[in-house]
Design a protein around this nucleic acid. Sequence first.
DNA 1: TTGACTAATGTAATAACATCACATACGAAC
DNA 2: GTTCGTATGTGATGTTATTACATTAGTCAA
Lengths: 134, 134
Amino acid sequence: MAATQELTKNQSLVFDALTRADGPLSAYTILDQLRENGFRAPLQVYRALDKLLDYGMIHRLESINAFVACSHPHDHSHSHGMIAFAICEKCGQVTEFSDEVITARVREWTKGNGFKPSKTTIEIRGICASCSTA
Amino acid sequence: MAATQELTKNQSLVFDALTRADGPLSAYTILDQLRENGFRAPLQVYRALDKLLDYGMIHRLESINAFVACSHPHDHSHSHGMIAFAICEKCGQVTEFSDEVITARVREWTKGNGFKPSKTTIEIRGICASCSTA
DNA sequence: TTGACTAATGTAATAACATCACATACGAAC
DNA sequence: GTTCGTATGTGATGTTATTACATTAGTCAA
């Protein structure tokens, strides 16, 4: 499984909702948006989100309990590196970037300490450029 | 406000609970532990946690909704740098470290993108050395 | 075609995490 | 002692996520 068109109905609905939104959405916000599509329960959303996370098509922002569509959907180059997120606390915009230096440095630490990493979260909250000039 | 002995009663109780524990605790776990000390409601815990976070005496682990006592309580050297956490998903142990290279690299990114950071989260989940040999 | 298996879905209930709103108490400054 | 800020007590509510169980739909082989 890899491409968008192979998603199930619910997965597509959830993924489309996240793609339409230009910022992170909470699971319950997605649920509300999809009620007209027949969604009734949180689990319908969470199950789809789990799969989409598996497929690497979306990300979970731990610090705000929300989800975003991956902004580099066709770029698998950073899929094994760490992804960092800058989250604007004013407008909600999320910028995704990956940095080899940080990735390498984290890997050094884990190697040096015998720690086997499974998932690494890097989230910077603050005010984005447009919001601080506005 | 800076030192432990200036904490209020509730703040001390919460801080002590976190210090006794040798791993992260959720707010509700703390609440349960402090019922015999008169705690009745979540807010009593959350208010204390907020202050302790302000004072830099504890940290919040965003990825697991839990709190830990700072492991470098007398070391203010890294208090303006970023702190990273390695969280063992097996035993719950949390190792706290700060890395100037990562800190610098994040600062570079934020400067370069006009992003004003307020709080940065770095959390590595995985299996710690003792758990992977055991 | 039937049966067996697997993946996806539907639904209700509940658990886990966090905040709001309002009342009361306490200490310091005047 | 009044005023003011901080801390506290308490119930209700809001938000996020999971458990448990039933049902549906597709695949594949006998």
